[in-house]
């Protein structure tokens, strides 16, 4: 089941990158987040899945739609066709045109990007081999004496909350949650400052 979801996620990510229609790309990213939420739920991370569904699939998609509404629906510049064959054709043309220029760099920007992405992916795949299986009792996070075990054992008695996630966020990691709240406040503040001309706009009174 996880493999199927992961395969669909990869396909959706490729589609989001290749789509020229930004509205469609935003919708694809929404579907991506919803599948991600499903994946979190399969891992028993219900709170994360809930947040992913509400923020990733819900509000983020709407914010992307709002941005598309401002910048226009079609992507500008030399395009990448969703079909592989025309894309390869255009890539060959691009390389041929580049090869004729006298000041051509040793590696084109695309080759460099491919190299960086390939190396990063190789490093991540190499690191992923050492990841413990989900729920593995021998994993460092689950060993006796680890902080996770302490939370699981003591949270109900310490706080009286049945869902351990909430005391972790609100009690044991209360400072972090306060910082997160301030980060969200700051993000909204910045958007207001940029898009509302430093507060000179007096609210929606003049709005239609």
């Amino acid at each position: 089941m996880e493999d199927l979801i992961l395969a669909i996620l990869v396909a959706l990510a490729l589609a989001a990158v290749r789509l020229k229609d930004l509205l469609g790309a935003a919708a694809v990213l929404g579907a991506y987040s919803l599948l991600m939420a499903l994946l979190w739920c399969r891992m028993n991370a219900l709170d994360v899945g809930f947040t992913e569904a509400a923020v990733g699939a819900g509000v983020s998609t709407v914010l992307l739609l709002a941005a598309v509404n401002r910048v226009g629906r079609r992507e500008q510049g030399p395009g990448v066709s969703p079909l592989l064959k025309p894309a390869l054709w255009r890539l060959a043309e691009h390389r041929a045109a580049l090869a004729e220029r006298p000041d051509r760099p040793l590696l084109s920007a695309r080759t460099m990007a491919l190299l960086v992405v390939g190396l990063t992916a190789a490093a991540l795949l190499y690191g992923a081999r050492d990841m413990p299986r989900i729920g593995d009792p021998a994993a460092p996070a689950n060993r006796a004496g680890s902080v996770a075990q302490h939370y699981l054992r003591h949270a109900p008695a310490d706080t009286g909350a049945a869902n351990v996630v909430t005391p972790v966020l609100g009690d044991y990691r209360g400072y972090d949650t306060m910082g997160e709240t301030i980060v969200i406040f700051t993000a909204a503040l910045c958007v207001v400052l940029v898009l509302r001309q430093a507060g000179r706009w007096r609210g929606p009174k003049e709005a239609p």
């Binding site: 914010l63 993000a187 958007v191 898009l195």
Partner: peptide, 29 residues
């Protein structure tokens, strides 16, 4: 605990709505 959750909710809901209304403002406005 409920009190701080209320605080988080107030800021998050106002921030999310503000982000949407600032970004989605029609070109005319």
């Amino acid at each position: 605990l409920i009190g701080i959750e209320v605080g988080v909710m107030v800021t998050v809901s106002a921030a999310m709505a503000t982000l949407f209304f600032e970004m989605a403002r029609p070109a005319r406005v």
